[in-house]
């Protein structure tokens, strides 16, 4: 007779006092997806509004980051899976009630779209680029003709992707800290501000940089507003959500959240951008890197702290 070693459940209060399933992969994946979504949304939006020439970097150059971010994101998602050989099951099933399924399918659409978008602008990076084959030129001119449609797809799927990075967590009522619908818009605006920061770093045009500093300022304002509302909502809610908020208000995540996310990722860059707009000279890369760092830390802290928060029973 075959003997089987029985392994007891890990998520047992006596063995593992808290949920311990998602490590660095999921927050990194959410950050990369969110930032790519931000970049693509901004590019699509300015293209649709016909501002391509005013914001050339945002529409034509920054999107080159998106395919890399998305592919690395997909790889980290893959690394996170424990039953990797069955990965393809994600793409033989459509489950409308599952945020994970939404995310997988959204990535399936937006990743190729981002590749096409970059291919259409490849001459901006490599002026002597030659596609070699005529059929590739035919495909290129086809997409050039329907570039507006492409931009709309990119915008809509970018928004879905950005919101999804938050909804993935907020759909879990089992983790009181995640179970707030604010996470969707909060992660979307954090992704948008990371996307705007990328253009701020890459742009060589002064007026474009000023515009993106302004966009970042507005987005930081929105994020702060959402964070305050998130805490107000928690504190006015049931005991489990009050406990969840306490993780950040005196609990183990207080310092990391307020210092890394709010002060370094929002308040300092906002101040620097404000000074930059008001004639001081600040190298644009400083606030931009801080914003990107804050956006990454937000994902990490929320994912880790959420696994500590639980129902009391």
């Amino acid at each position: 007779m075959e003997e089987e070693l029985l392994v007891s459940g890990r998520m047992n209060h006596l063995i593992d006092p808290q949920l311990n399933i998602w490590h660095w992969q999921i927050p990194l994946y959410l950050f990369l997806g969110g930032m790519a979504a931000g970049i693509l949304c901004i590019a699509a939006l300015y293209f649709i509004r016909g501002r391509e020439n005013d914001y050339r970097t945002a529409v034509r150059i920054t999107p080159f980051l998106a395919p890399f971010l998305l592919v690395i994101g997909l790889i980290t998602l893959f690394i996170d899976l424990r039953h990797k050989l069955f990965f393809w099951q994600l793409y033989t099933n459509i489950r409308l009630q599952s945020p994970m399924s939404w995310g997988a399918w959204t990535l399936m659409v937006i990743t190729p779209v981002s590749f096409i978008w970059c291919a259409l602008h490849i001459k901006d990076i490599f002026p002597n680029w030659d596609w070699k084959f005529k059929w590739i030129y035919d495909i290129e001119s086809f997409f050039n003709k329907y570039k507006k449609v492409l931009a709309w797809i990119m915008l809509i799927y970018g928004i879905i992707l950005g919101i999804y990075t938050g909804i993935l967590l907020s759909a879990f009522n089992a983790r009181p800290l995640w179970n707030t619908s604010i996470l969707g818009p909060l992660f979307l605006s954090s992704g948008l501000s990371a996307g705007a920061a990328a253009t701020l770093i890459l742009s060589k045009n002064k007026s474009e940089r000023r515009q993106f500093a302004r966009i970042d300022l507005v987005l930081i304002g929105i994020e702060l507003f959402l964070i305050i509302h998130m805490f107000m909502g928690f504190l006015a809610s049931t005991q489990v959500q009050i406990e969840a908020a306490k993780l950040f208000l005196g609990g183990p995540y207080t310092m990391s959240f307020w210092i890394f996310v709010v002060i370094m990722g929002m308040l300092i860059p906002a101040l620097l951008e404000f000074m930059e707009l008001g004639k001081f000279h600040i190298p644009a890369i400083v606030p931009a890197v801080l914003v990107i760092f804050g956006s990454l830390m937000l994902r990490f802290i929320i994912v880790y702290a959420g696994q500590v928060s639980r129902w009391l029973y």
């Binding site: 459940g9 998520m11 047992n12 209060h13 949920l19 399933i21 998602w22 996170d80 899976l81 424990r82 039953h83 990797k84 069955f86 990965f87 099951q89 994600l90 099933n93 599952s98 945020p99 994970m100 993935l168 759909a171 879990f172 009522n173 089992a174 983790r175 696994q307 639980r310 129902w311």
Partner: peptide, 15 residues
């Protein structure tokens, strides 16, 4: 059919 994504583990309030 399971890919081991862990979503179900995160979603179960009873762990």
């Amino acid at each position: 059919k399971c890919i081991g994504c862990g979503a179900c583990m995160a979603s179960c309030p009873y762990d």
